[in-house]
């Protein structure tokens, strides 16, 4: 059985799954729209937590939150199921496919066989859509991939029951109730306000303040941790910012695309100007990544070089603070 489902490639898996599932139900909604309404943009340094033996930094909201907020704000209902029993998880999936209902699944990346080895880490918040089954192979639409693919029953079970942080526990979800037509205007305003609040939060490791906090940490790394570790940490910052799923510039370009689309829907020219400004901030993030890569490429650790990228980050922090203050007023 194969459901007539359109695979649209996206930058980020969660937005992409939502956008594609909504498209199947006849609601055309872009990836940046899902990301913006779901207040996906963020900056957060998570103290004491280490990921891949480096400090944890994120440029986006927690996995699952974007869809949750999006659904609430546009008024759709999502059915979610988690399982402790693998057989039951499979049975429920098959049942949905028989009813012509494509579903979203949360999966772990480590055992996702169609990814190249280099990309397979223990990251459990990846999302994909299953849109059919032919013999014992599930038809998979992974939004970050150019084309659709397949997985065997065994392979799919393994990724649905990956372990570790954010273990998916077979998590399956799909939208069930829809309003007659989506009212985006209010949802956009809510989404933007929420993001402004997050980015201007009076918490030292969140939002603009968080960016400046990390700038301060980077200055100390070479002396405190030694060249090798400092370079490893810096490489991890760049990976969190630029790795597949971000759309470039730590999600800042996706957000700029959202503001551009919103300016047309809300007929608010200011948002279009702010979109351009966000694009420039995204470019600054890219410049930061380029200069950081020079450090870890040459494996040098001149204090100066570290101070320089820290300065860049500080500037970005100030710019984002000014930006979200303006955005708050524009809405």
């Amino acid at each position: 059985m194969k459901i007539d489902f359109t695979h649209n490639q996206s930058a980020h898996c969660e937005n992409g799954v939502v956008s594609n599932l909504m498209g199947y139900k006849g609601f055309k909604i872009s990836e940046p729209m899902v990301f913006g309404i779901g207040s996906g943009l963020l900056f957060c340094y998570i103290p004491f937590l280490m990921v891949n033996h480096a400090p944890a930094i994120t440029y986006r909201a927690m996995p699952g939150l974007i869809f949750k907020r999006f659904a609430k704000r546009v008024g759709i209902k999502i059915q979610r199921e988690k399982f402790s029993n693998k057989e039951k998880a499979k049975a429920r999936l098959d049942e949905n496919l028989r009813k012509d209902n494509p579903v979203g699944l949360q999966v772990g990346v480590y055992n996702l066989v169609y990814f190249p080895d280099e990309y397979r880490f223990h990251f459990n918040a990846h999302n994909l859509v299953v849109y059919g089954k032919e013999e014992d192979r599930y038809l998979i639409s992974d939004p970050v991939m150019e084309t659709v693919t397949t997985l065997t029953e065994k392979q799919l079970e393994k990724v649905r029951f990956a372990k570790g942080a954010f273990a998916p526990k077979g998590h399956m979800y799909y939208p069930i109730e829809f309003p007659k037509d989506l009212k985006l205007e209010k949802a956009i305003v809510k989404g933007i306000k929420h993001t402004c609040r997050d980015m201007l939060a009076p918490v030292p490791f969140v939002g603009a303040k968080g960016i400046r906090k990390v700038a301060g940490l980077i200055r100390k790394w070479p002396k405190k941790k030694g060249v090798k570790v400092a370079n490893h940490y810096l490489g991890q910052v760049v990976r969190m910012q630029e790795e597949i799923g971000t759309g470039g510039g730590g999600f800042r370009y996706i957000y700029a695309a959202f503001l551009q689309e919103s300016s047309k829907i809300l007929k608010n020219d200011q948002l279009s100007e702010l979109s351009k400004e966000m694009t420039e901030i995204g470019d600054l993030w890219r410049d930061f990544a380029v200069d950081a890569s020079r450090i870890y490429k040459n494996r040098s650790a001149l204090d100066d070089a570290y101070n320089k990228v820290a300065d860049q980050l500080n500037t970005i922090g100030n710019k984002e603070e000014a930006f979200f203050k303006k955005l708050k007023k524009a809405i």
Binding site: N52, H232, G235, Q236, R239, E242, V290, A292, S293
Partner: peptide, 15 residues
């Protein structure tokens, strides 16, 4: 692809 992040990934794999 982008060299800036490919190098970061390769360094992480080397580690």
């Amino acid at each position: 692809g982008w060299d800036v992040k490919t190098i970061a990934l390769e360094n992480a794999l080397e580690e």
